[in-house]
Simulated scan of single mutants.
Amino acid sequence: MQLGDDTPSRPPRPGLFARLRNNFLTGLIVIAPIGLTFWLIWSVIGWIDGWVLPFVPHRYRPDIWLLQQFGLDLDIRGIGVAFFLVFTLIVGWAAKGLIGRSILRFAENLVQTMPIVRSVYGGLKQIAETILAQDQSSFEQACLVEYPRKGIWAIGFVSTSAKGELAARAEMPMLSVFLPTTPNPTSGFLLLVPEDDVVMLDMSVEDAAKLVISAGLVYPGEKDAKDRVPDLDPAG
């Protein structure tokens, strides 16, 4: 470079090993979420098959029929899932009928006579009805609450306003807030927080759940700001 030339010098181009490393990391960022998603789906399907297929007679299983007729020993994933879906549809259809409702009522009355079983059944039924209800979402909104002390904030999910005895005994409006744990948001704590102490968030419940699961590594809006595959090679 000549004296007096203010042209900035270009940074040295990364070597071959650095470019290969950056390309590998970029490819890993693309492949890892897709691969983990398919692996999780494949594993769940296999788990359901292993749980359902022992209850299915051999004459109704396609893999057993192929083995007996053609000698093909194939591991066909999803057979148990298909039987489970059909069985669930039949049970749901029967439960809506008069006979089905009568049988279901008789079974629930029988369960209510068992001290420990009725508590477990009642709790699981209430959780299932809350999660699978089609006319309402599981949580209303994501929020911030000061927990475990003042000055420290945690992400929570507003479920409902306090009702019944809790609302009657409280001296102020209270909200039921579920405080999830990281990285497993299915476990957590139920907090009854004064409504004035809850800071509502604009982000959706799904985005807040992603933030909790990722331990703060995935923030809402990052995808909109970087709607492309990250380029780890500064030299392009």
Rank of each mutant, 00 (worst) to 15 (best):
K96Y: 07
L192T: 10
W65S: 06
L85D: 08
S176H: 12
D202I: 00
E171V: 02
P12Q: 15
P62S: 06
I116S: 15
I34L: 08
L74M: 08
I152K: 12
P194N: 05
P57Q: 00
Q126K: 14
D135M: 03
T160R: 15
E206H: 14
A32D: 08
D231R: 14
A128K: 00
D224C: 07
V177H: 00
G80P: 03
L74W: 11
L28E: 10
V117S: 04
G78P: 04
N109Q: 12
P230K: 03
R101G: 13
L201M: 09
I34E: 05
K226G: 13
E222M: 14
I152M: 14
G35P: 05
R77G: 14
G221C: 00
L89Q: 02
S161I: 12
V145P: 03
F38I: 08
C143V: 14
A168F: 04
I79V: 09
F38L: 11
R105G: 11
D6W: 06
S204A: 02
Q68V: 09
G71S: 03
K96N: 09
D231T: 15
V177A: 00
I99V: 08
W39T: 07
I45S: 11
F55D: 12
D233M: 02
I155R: 08
T130D: 15
L232T: 08
A208I: 00
T26G: 12
F178M: 00
C143E: 01
L25R: 12
G92Y: 10
G236A: 01
W153V: 06
I64C: 09
V117K: 03
Y147R: 00
I103F: 11
I48A: 07
R13E: 11
Q69R: 15
S204N: 01
V205S: 08
D5F: 13
E108W: 01
R105E: 10
F24M: 12
